[in-house]
Design a protein around this nucleic acid. Sequence first.
DNA 1: CAGTGGTCTAGACCACTGA
DNA 2: CAGTGGTCTAGACCACTGA
Lengths: 249, 249
Amino acid sequence: MSNPLRLNKRDHKPLFKQIADGVRGQIEAGQLKAGEPIPSEREYVEQLGVSRMTVRAALDELVREGLLVRQHGRSTVVAGARIHKNALGFMSFTEDMRSRGLEASSRLLRLEAEVADAAVAAQLGLGVGERVIRIERVRLANGEPMALERCFLPHARFGRLLEEDLTQQSLYDVLERRFDCRPMLAEESIEATLLDTQEARQLGVARNSPALLARRSTRDEPGQLIEAVQTLYRADRYRMLFVRRRQGQ
Amino acid sequence: MSNPLRLNKRDHKPLFKQIADGVRGQIEAGQLKAGEPIPSEREYVEQLGVSRMTVRAALDELVREGLLVRQHGRSTVVAGARIHKNALGFMSFTEDMRSRGLEASSRLLRLEAEVADAAVAAQLGLGVGERVIRIERVRLANGEPMALERCFLPHARFGRLLEEDLTQQSLYDVLERRFDCRPMLAEESIEATLLDTQEARQLGVARNSPALLARRSTRDEPGQLIEAVQTLYRADRYRMLFVRRRQGQ
DNA sequence: CAGTGGTCTAGACCACTGA
DNA sequence: CAGTGGTCTAGACCACTGA
């Protein structure tokens, strides 16, 4: 028998989030074991003194995360898997490295305003001739080159980026702090490619080494396009991890 | 003013799914336009004669799909984007090609039972020495080689696969029809690599051509590991597309 | 059959945004 | 302030599973 969950009804955090966090914690601590059933929703209702809809909202979250599996007519069980954490969703390079236990930094190659070419304008939903901020950085992990990143943002909204130091800071941190802008949704494509001479030199590998090429368009909460990024990752040092859930029906 | 939604309370389909499908349809048909607010939840309640929780369950689904964006204190708006369909979730090769308007087929290289090596056993959660089905196929799109796939499944559960014709059929179709097994969750890693001589010949490209290497472990609804796949995609013909949503908080 | 999850109701109060 | 989405209650009935 595991310790019962405790709720703090005075806390600002919604009850269903407190429950989700609590159950997630018990799973991660091994108090609820993979493959084994968790208490029924009605048991949680009694134990916690909340309504069943609240319990379900909490468990829904864990089901979406892949930690729980519901079985109609039977019980809800802890998913058999150890799912790689942070595998869902998307992250900035800085966050990505941090989640792998590495420290991110940058060598700034370019930071300037320029007129968008047709491809970039289309990716950012801008008109022809509109200006963008161009940021080119070699991204380092524990001081070693990991990726080469070319990033474009609309100048009209993000012009003040030109005054920021982007060698140590996460771009996403700056967007949040200085522009109150939170990236929320990304459309991404991944392909394999070979590095040309210049790219290879900047990444410290041989010409024609393989690389992962990721292109991403990112939107903020209101759905505005904020960023078009193209990143070349060294194939010998980088592997992209994620978890996918099958779509309905 | 768009046509009001119609619900069929006799239908087996849950009301919240009917509402979600209806609103999704209005968005796709352009009756609800990108960037514009949709009716408030209370308006739907009146219009449809359902409770607000039901309306919210429907809209929750569309928010998770990235079609809607909620704004606390303001209204809920249609997301600015045209998100690539089928970009979330994961698909079998056959489904993937179909979603791109291509016809999938296979050239079967191997279909046999063998003893799992340590790596495959670990991926499938089997003990050392347990048997697996090994399926190796060149995957074709409209008759042209697109990918080279090595797939392993536990022999104990899927031994009857040896009797199936896997040149035209989707493996996932067979799993569903013959084994009542539905793949639901996949843990995937993507990296870039170069093809060796034999792989290149099977894909009809030059040696040392770049390729995307995807490794996937797949689970069914109860969370059992059912499949470990390794797929090499030709870099010149294949690009992986997906949509990511930012996590938590 | 008892127990489970799946859906739904008809309310309530809150926090937030903009006029 | 009125109107929005965010959370929550205390029930109800259903479909499904396994004994």
